[in-house]
Design a binder for these strands. Structure first.
Length: 275
DNA sequence: GTCTATGTTTGCGG
DNA sequence: TCCGCAAACATAGA
C-alpha cells in the first residue's frame, strides 16, 4: 500500500509524536514472520533507544542505539500509538512498549510487512536505487540508468526499486500521465525531451502526494492511514489512477485501464501515445 | 460458494 | 536481459 509519499507522511507523524528519545522497554510479537523470529527480535530490541527516524525508498528507518530497525509496510502495514492494556486487535502483529508509557502498535492485515533489526544496513537497503527527492536524482543520473536498460518498458522500469526507490503503482501511473508517456514504451525509444519530462514528473507527483499527506484508497481499515489515524487526501487529486472510464483531465478522452507488468495500469490512450 | 482484484516484493523458469 | 507467473496472505466485491 504505502509508497514514498505515504511513508514520508508516517515519518513526519513519528517526528510530531516525539518518538525520538524513547526507549523500548519490551516487545510483544503476535506473528513471528513479521520480525523474522520473535524470541531473538525481542531480546535484541529491548533497551534500545530511538535516535532517529528517516526513510529510504519505501522503508521506514529507525536508528536505534545499537541497531537499525527497517520496516517495510508492504500492502497493509500500519503503526499507531496505544496504551499497554489495550486489547490485542485481530491483525496486530507487533507491539513495542516505550519507557514513556505509550506502546507502539503495528497492524498488518495481509502479513506481508517486514521488520529487519540489524547493524548491517547494506543487507536491507544496499540494492535500492536513486532517491527521487534527493539531489542524487539528477537528470544525468536518470539518463544513465535509462541507457543501461534500453529494452525495459517504462512501467516495469519505474516499479523496480533497484533503479529508483519509492515509486509504486499509483505514482508510476501518475508520473507517466504527467509526462505524456505510454507505460509500454521502451526506454530506448525515449527522446531527450521525453526523458526530461519524466525526470520532472517523478518528483512532482511525489511531492504533491506528500503535500496531501498520502493516498488512502477505498474506505475500509486495511487501507492507508498515518500514525495519527488520519486518512490521506491525495486520492482526490489523482489524475489517472483508478479513474478508468472517467475523462482525462487534460484532453477529455475516456481513461483506459489494462494489465501491464502484472499490475493494473491506468492511462490516457490519447495523450500517452505508444508510437 | 466462486472468481477476481488489491497499493509490494522476491524468486523461479523460459 | 527481460518477462510472466506464483507466492507470501486476507478481504471485499461482483
Amino acid at each position: 500500500m504505502p509508497e514514498l509519499p505515504e511513508v514520508e507522511t508516517i515519518l513526519n507523524d513519528f517526528l510530531s509524536a516525539h518518538l525520538i528519545g524513547t526507549i523500548i522497554k519490551n516487545a510483544e510479537v503476535f506473528w513471528s514472520k513479521t520480525v523474522g523470529g520473535s524470541a531473538q527480535f525481542i531480546k535484541r530490541i529491548q533497551g534500545q533507544k530511538f535516535k532517529k527516524v528517516s526513510r529510504r525508498g519505501k522503508f521506514l528507518v529507525f536508528t536505534l542505539s545499537q541497531d537499525t530497525l527497517f520496516v517495510h509496510l508492504r500492502m497493509t502495514g500500519k503503526f499507531f500509538f496505544g496504551k499497554p492494556n489495550d486489547p490485542v486487535s485481530s491483525h496486530e502483529r507487533v507491539r513495542l512498549f516505550l519507557d514513556d508509557g505509550r506502546i507502539l502498535r503495528y497492524e498488518d492485515q495481509r502479513k506481508f510487512g517486514r521488520f529487519f533489526l540489524t547493524d548491517k544496513l547494506e543487507e536491507v537497503v544496499g540494492d535500492l536505487g536513486l532517491e527521487p527527492l534527493n539531489a542524487e536524482f539528477s537528470l544525468n543520473a536518470f539518463k544513465k540508468i535509462i541507457e543501461e536498460h534500453p529494452l525495459l518498458k517504462l512501467k516495469s522500469f519505474l516499479l523496480n526499486q533497484n533503479y529508483i526507490a519509492g515509486l509504486g503503482n499509483i505514482y508510476v501511473d501518475e508520473a507517466l500521465w504527467d509526462a505524456k508517456l505510454h507505460p509500454l514504451r521502451t526506454l530506448q525509444s525515449l527522446s531527450t525531451q521525453e526523458i526530461k519530462a519524466l525526470h520532472h514528473a517523478i518528483p512532482k507527483v511525489l511531492k504533491l502526494g506528500i503535500q496531501n499527506m498520502g493516498t488512502t484508497l477505498g474506505s475500509h481499515l486495511a487501507n492507508y492511514y498515518s500514525v495519527s489515524g488520519r486518512r490521506g487526501n491525495h486520492q482526490h487529486q489523482l489524475k489517472v489512477f483508478r479513474r478508468n472510464g472517467l475523462a482525462c483531465p487534460r484532453c477529455g478522452t475516456t481513461l483506459s485501464k489494462s494489465r501491464i507488468s502484472q499490475r493494473g495500469t491506468h492511462f490516457c490512450a490519447q495523450c500517452q501515445i505508444i508510437q
